[in-house]
Structures are given as structure tokens and as C-alpha cells.
């Protein structure tokens, strides 16, 4: 499984990429592989804020549905517009074009509590 070392991870299989105050959130390669073909990402268009550990939407695969959990507190800057028509980008490029949220990180202390790539690799092994 691909677990890039420049990202932070949750035990619920989300990743967070930190660029200064900005963060990108997605689900891991392991998660997309377990879910299989993703056909719909359901995030309320009017969602403004996410808070660590809480659900901010759901992700629908053919066989199953799964909650999406926020890695940290933050303000939602953008929902990946491509996912509306191409949710399968999460399958094909989980850490790139398959990003789900762009956020402004509200609490950087929470970021330090997230799993490292090594810890996450252990979790899924």
C-alpha cells in the first residue's frame, strides 16, 4: 500500500496534507482499495466548518457506505469540484486528484497528534 511520508493520517483512514495554514483532506490508498469502486461523495454543499473526529460527509462505494471524519478543526475553503462527476478519482489517485476537502487549519496542535506514515503503515499491516 502506498503511504506517502509527507502526509499525516487518522486511524479512520483519512490523510491530511499541510501547506502552511492550508490543508488538503482525502482518504488513503488503503481505504479506497478496501471500499472498491467509489460512486458518490456526499458532502453538504453548505458545510463551513469541520471539527476533529466528527463526520463531515459520506463516501459511497458500490458495496458499502462509509463516513468521512475530519482530521482536525478547520474552515472549509473548497470541496473538490471534480468529485461530483468523477468520484472514481479517489480510486485512481487517492493522494492527488482524489483530494476531498481544502481547509484552513484552525488548530495546528491537533495536526501533531495525527499518525505519522510509519504509525499508519503499522495500523493497516
Amino acid at each position: 500500500m502506498n503511504v506517502p511520508n509527507n502526509l499525516k493520517y487518522t486511524k479512520d483512514h483519512e490523510w491530511l496534507k499541510v501547506e502552511g495554514n492550508t490543508g488538503f483532506v482525502g482518504i488513503t490508498d488503503f481505504a479506497q482499495s478496501e471500499l472498491g469502486d467509489i460512486v458518490f461523495v456526499d458532502i453538504a454543499a453548505d458545510v463551513n466548518e469541520i471539527s476533529a473526529g466528527n463526520s463531515f460527509g459520506t463516501i459511497e462505494a458500490v458495496k458499502t457506505v462509509s463516513e468521512l471524519f475530519a482530521p482536525c478543526d478547520g474552515k472549509v475553503l473548497e470541496i473538490n469540484p471534480k468529485l461530483q462527476d468523477e468520484p472514481q478519482l479517489i480510486n485512481s489517485d487517492a493522494y492527488g486528484d482524489g483530494w476531498i476537502l481544502k481547509i484552513e487549519i484552525a488548530n495546528s496542535a491537533q495536526v501533531n497528534e495525527l499518525l505519522s506514515d510509519e504509525d499508519y503503515s503499522k495500523l493497516i499491516s
Partner: peptide, 20 residues
């Protein structure tokens, strides 16, 4: 294949992509 218990049998639910 991803194998699952179906009716007591170890059965393939998908090989790669259900949609494909």
C-alpha cells in the same frame, strides 16, 4: 480476488473493479 463468506462458501466478490 477479494474473497468473502457467501452462504458458507469462500467466494470472489470482486477481482479488481465491480464496475469494470
Amino acid at each position: 480476488a477479494k474473497l468473502v463468506d457467501f452462504a458458507g462458501f469462500n467466494m470472489p466478490v470482486q477481482y479488481n473493479s465491480i464496475i469494470a
